Simulated assay, not measured.
Amino acid sequence: MSIANSFRAIQARLTMVMVEDDGMSTVEYAIGTIAAAAFGAILYTVVTGDSIVSALTNIISRALNTNV
């Protein structure tokens, strides 16, 4: 193996070591879980508000009303 080939092999290996992100998956899952929980809390707050509950109740009442 020539010196140039050895240098290229070492350079390729170092590049792969710097690019690998095996440890990132746990952090990404944690951040995704926190974001999903925050979105769920905000959605729950909005949906359980008085104006949304009354609007949904009116929509369902009108949909189930058989008097035309």
Rank of each mutant, 00 (worst) to 15 (best):
G40A: 06
I31W: 01
T33K: 08
D21Y: 00
M1W: 11
T48C: 13
S61E: 15
Y29G: 09
I59V: 13
I52F: 07
G40N: 08
V19W: 03
V46P: 06
N65I: 03
M18I: 00
I3L: 08
V47C: 08
M16I: 00
L43E: 07
T45W: 14
L56V: 14
G23R: 02
T48D: 06
V17K: 00
A12V: 02
I52E: 03
Y44N: 04
D21G: 08
V47Y: 12
M16H: 08
Y44R: 11
V47M: 10
S25R: 03
I3P: 01
I34L: 12
M24Q: 06
T66Y: 11
G23S: 03
A12S: 12
D22A: 14
I3K: 09
A30E: 12
T15F: 01
I34H: 04
S51D: 15
I42Y: 09
I60N: 13
S2R: 03
G40S: 05
S6G: 07
R62K: 15
V53S: 12
T15M: 01
T48Y: 02
T48H: 10
A36V: 08
I34A: 15
V46G: 02
L56Y: 11
S6Q: 14
G40V: 01
M24P: 00
A41Q: 04
A36R: 04
I3H: 10
D21F: 00
T15S: 12
T26M: 05
I59N: 05
A37S: 09
A9P: 01
A38K: 08
A36T: 05
L43S: 09
T66H: 11
A4S: 12
V68H: 13
A4R: 09
I60Y: 14
S25L: 04
I10T: 01
M18Q: 01
A41T: 11
S2D: 15
M24I: 07
T66R: 15
N58W: 13
E20F: 00
A55E: 15
A55W: 14
E20P: 00
A41E: 11
R62T: 11
L64N: 13
L56W: 05
M24H: 02
M24V: 03
F7G: 00
S54R: 15
I42R: 06
E28L: 05
S61N: 14
V19N: 07
E28S: 03
A37Q: 10
S6A: 13
T45Q: 09
A36I: 05
L14C: 01
I42W: 09
A36H: 00
D21W: 00
V68F: 14
A38W: 01
